[in-house]
């Protein structure tokens, strides 16, 4: 059971949130100019890494705001949250190696 930090409400139990998958999937501005393959990449394909993953969460039992979380998909360690439009927090090599936040 993860502990997720809502940028507004603070650290809360995972059950207050929903994860909406990978963050920073930007909707193309010019869909008509894209090939089927390019459009398909946007609609269907996600990076699915083993490692750090930026993902979109919503605090739906709380302030109902969307924000982003950096989570390690293998260890489930959360390295920070940030609001839409903000830069993702840096995760140092040291923090990754140490396996601790």
């Amino acid at each position: 059971m993860l502990l997720i930090e809502c940028p507004w409400c603070g650290e809360r139990d995972q059950t207050e949130f929903t994860c909406h998958g990978e963050a920073h999937i930007v909707r193309p501005k010019n869909p008509d100019e894209l090939t089927d393959e390019q459009w398909g990449d946007y609609v269907f394909f996600r990076s699915n890494p083993k490692g750090l993953h930026k993902e979109r969460w919503v605090h739906d039992h709380g302030c109902r705001r969307w924000f982003n979380v950096v989570r390690h998909t293998h260890t489930d360690i959360v390295y920070g949250s940030y609001k839409p439009g903000e830069p993702a927090p840096e995760v140092s090599e040291e923090a990754l190696k140490g396996g601790k936040k």
Binding site: T18, H20, V26, R27, R56, V58, D60, R64, R65, W66, P84, G85
Partner: peptide, 13 residues
């Protein structure tokens, strides 16, 4: 409701 909010908050602020 979630669908509308998600587009407004993340893609079209």
């Amino acid at each position: 409701a979630n669908w509308l909010e998600e587009w407004l908050q993340t893609e079209w602020p």
